[in-house]
Structure formats: C-alpha cells, structure tokens
C-alpha cells in the first residue's frame, strides 16, 4: 500500500482532502496517525511561549538610543542614599542570600542583632552555615531598616526610583535563572530582589490594577 507523503499530510492539516486522499485516510491508520501528529505539531508551534531576551540586549539598545538622542538619562531622585543602600544590599546579598534561597526561610526565631560569631571559619557543616547566613541576613535587614528610618525620610519619588531599580535587577536575575535555574546564589539575588520590590511597592501604596512606573 502506498501511503500519503508527509508533504501531502502537511497540506491536509489546514486544507480539505481530495476524494482519493480521503479514501486512503479512511482505511489507513498509519496515515491518520501521521496527520494527527502533524496537527499536534502545528498546534504546539502556535502555542510556543515568548522568550526572555538575554539581559545584555537592553544596555546595548539603551546605549544606541542615547547616542541618537532618543533616550534621556534617568532622573536621579535621592540618589545618594539609595546608592548607599544598594551598595550595602549588594555586598550582603553576594553571600548571604544564597543560604536563604537554598534552605528556605527557617526564621520564626527573632533575629539576634548581636550575633556575628567570631568563629565563622569554624563552621564546617553546610546546614549550620545556611543557618548562620539566615541569622546574619535577619540582623542585617533589621539594622538596615533602622538606618533607613534614622538617615532620612523616604519620599515617594525615592521609592519609585528604587522600585524601578529593583525591576531592572529582576529582569537580569530572571534571565540568569533561565540559564541556571538551580544556582543558589542567583536564586538568592532573585528572591531578595523580589521581596524588596514587594516591600517597596507596598510602601508606595501600589495599586495592582495600574503599573507603578
């Protein structure tokens, strides 16, 4: 028995069969199965998801737009304090958040701000190290929040700038996770940035029905 060619079956995905082709399909289970597979393939292609672009595309686009005068430099609202904040956060997150991401959030126990053990080098167990990181993280954020309260009141403009900055971080970490989904350090950055963004959006009374930018 001569089967229908794949090209013919590919045509029948969205065009009616000729009488002879229909008769063959009626009696040939193999060709019916192939046609069904081609229909599934076509449907699967139509439902392919969008793809996150690599993170280095945006900086290249922005640079070109600036060169052409199509993009103005962003306004730096309250820049100094948030720059300091971001620098501190980045330094902390470079090590600390990894344990939080990998081990989860164990801390129902209150942070002990005085707990910065001198014996860090003696920690030999990964679980103990993760626990230490979580304690340090909690103490760090407690200190940071107090610093923010004392340093200067934060205006809505500052918060929006911060939310935008965190969004940029999430764009990058999200793309990085696409490539290395199990990497604990990248997970740590991503989760911490997510938490900070949510906190910032709550502070500016974010209305979820409207974009914040």
């Amino acid at each position: 028995m001569s089967h229908l060619s794949l090209e013919t079956l590919a045509r029948l995905v969205d065009e009616p069969a000729e009488a002879e082709e229909a008769a063959h399909l009626e009696m040939c289970a193999e060709c019916r199965a192939e046609l069904e597979a081609l229909r599934d393939q076509t449907s699967d292609l139509a439902h392919l998801p969008d793809l996150e672009p690599p993170p280095d595309i945006w900086p290249a686009i922005a640079a070109r737009l600036r060169e052409e005068g199509l993009l103005r430099e962003p306004r730096r609202a309250g820049g100094a304090s948030w720059l300091r904040f971001a620098a501190s956060l980045a330094l902390f997150l470079a090590g600390g958040a990894a344990g939080f991401a990998v081990r989860g959030a164990p801390a129902s126990e209150p942070p002990d701000a005085g707990l910065i053990p001198a014996s860090i080098a003696n920690v030999a167990d990964v679980d103990e190290a993760a626990h230490l990181l979580e304690q340090t993280r909690a103490a760090y954020f407690a200190a940071l929040n107090r610093y923010a309260e004392l340093a200067e009141p934060v205006g809505r403009g500052d918060l929006m700038t911060r939310a935008a900055a965190l969004e940029s971080i999430l764009l990058t970490t999200g793309a990085a996770l696409d490539q290395a989904p199990a990497d604990p350090v990248i997970n740590g950055y991503h989760l911490s940035a997510l938490a900070q963004r949510e906190s910032t959006l709550r502070q500016i009374s974010f209305d979820p029905s409207e974009p914040w930018y």
Binding site: L51, E52, P53, W58, L65, L70, L71, P211, Y213
Partner: peptide, 20 residues
C-alpha cells in the same frame, strides 16, 4: 519624549514577544 522609564517599561512589556 525620550523618557527613560517609559522606554524601559515598553521594553519590559514587549521584549519577550519581540525576542521570541
């Protein structure tokens, strides 16, 4: 008008579709 935040927002919103 060249507002950085607006262009970024458009990019964030549409970049995955464009890139795909």
């Amino acid at each position: 008008r060249g507002e950085d935040s607006a262009i970024r927002a458009l990019y964030r919103r549409h970049a995955p579709r464009v890139y795909a």
